[in-house]
């Protein structure tokens, strides 16, 4: 029984489809990454899930309730660039948010303090949000999404705008949070998804290109692949072009002295290529044989 069930969800703006009939489910306790390039419809999807945009078509069902039931009480939402009232202090905002989600005043105050401490903002809790840095605002955004203990957390690009240190901090928090609640987060950085997620939904141009558990996608889409970098000499470039026509070659892309080959048999290909390279005295700079990653899958989906 999935916590969230999305069926044929569609949204178009002025006739142009932004999300074009996507269906997926999120099991309770899982972490789902909504992956895709800019403009794939991730933000629109999350906004529809958060009840901020009415879908053009399709249905969203939460916790087995009939579609259309208001589940915002159970929802934590962090938009791409959260905006706060700059004249409020972090703690004031948290209490405000907690009360609006139905908490009593006393509980709101104590929980707010605890959540701020958890995201590392307790020393700044009484300062005005206007003076917070980008990373602090993002952590406050995460805190306000968590304060009412939601069953589902929707995070829109939670780490994209942060510097490496801020990114690290938020990722650590997410790793922690995903133990307690169901998380759906969007990102265009595949590495983030691989780091903490169980399931991946890869979106492109408003549709789901691929979806499944991370493990399954890895197994299914990792292809035997060989990467070669040579010095930029005519001889080397000609040699790389000739390799295209080998029997083991399934797909080849060559540019600027760099080649990526999908091959049918890594062992055979490696032996042949290395022998030839040695025989012809090709100035090899790099040679790598192994499996293609999801990054390649991503590029393949996005590129087409």
């Amino acid at each position: 029984m999935p916590l969230l069930e999305v069926t044929n969800l569609r949204k178009s703006f002025g006739g142009h489809p932004s999300v074009d009939g996507i269906s997926f489910g999120a099991e309770a306790g899982r972490c789902v990454a909504l992956l895709g390039p800019n403009g794939a419809g991730k933000t629109t999807t999350l906004r529809m899930l958060a009840g901020l945009l009415p879908p053009t078509g399709g249905s969203i069902s939460f916790g087995g309730d009939p579609p259309g039931t208001d589940y915002r009480r159970q929802l934590g939402y962090l938009p791409q660039s959260p905006a706060f009232y700059s004249w409020m202090s972090g703690l004031e905002y948290m209490i405000f948010a907690a009360k609006l989600s139905g908490m009593a005043a006393k509980e709101a105050a104590s929980v707010s303090g605890a959540v701020l401490e958890r995201v590392g903002l307790s020393s700044a809790a009484r300062r005005r949000i206007g003076g917070y840095s980008g990373g602090m605002k993002q952590r406050l955004g995460l805190a306000q999404a968590l304060v009412h203990r939601p069953r589902l957390l929707l995070l829109d690009e939670p780490v994209s705008a942060l510097d490496p240190i801020g990114r690290r901090e938020v990722m650590e928090l997410l790793r922690d949070i995903r133990e307690e609640t169901t998380v759906i987060f969007s990102t265009h950085v595949l590495h983030d998804a691989e780091e903490i997620c169980d399931d991946v939904i890869l979106m492109n141009r408003g549709a789901i290109a691929v979806q499944g558990t991370l493990a399954r996608l890895r197994a299914e889409y990792s292809l035997p692949v060989i990467r070669i970098t040579t010095a930029k000499e005519d001889k080397a470039v000609r040699w790389l072009e000739e390799l295209r026509h080998k029997a083991f070659m399934e797909e080849a892309s060559i540019s600027d002295g760099r080649a990526v080959f999908n091959v049918s048999d890594v062992g055979l290909a490696r032996r042949m290529i290395l022998q030839e390279a040695a025989g012809l005295d090709i100035p090899l700079l790099q040679f790598e044989a192994g499996s293609s990653t999801l990054e390649d899958l991503f590029m393949k989906v996005v590129g087409t």
């Binding site: 958060a50 009840g51 901020l52 208001d70 915002r72 009480r73 929802l75 939402y77 938009p79 660039s81 959260p82 905006a83 706060f84 009232y85 948010a97 609006l100 989600s101 139905g102 955004g141 306000q144």
Partner: peptide, 13 residues
Amino acid sequence: SSGTAELLMARPV
């Protein structure tokens, strides 16, 4: 315009 409405409206109000 500032975007604070987005966070406000995601709550059950």
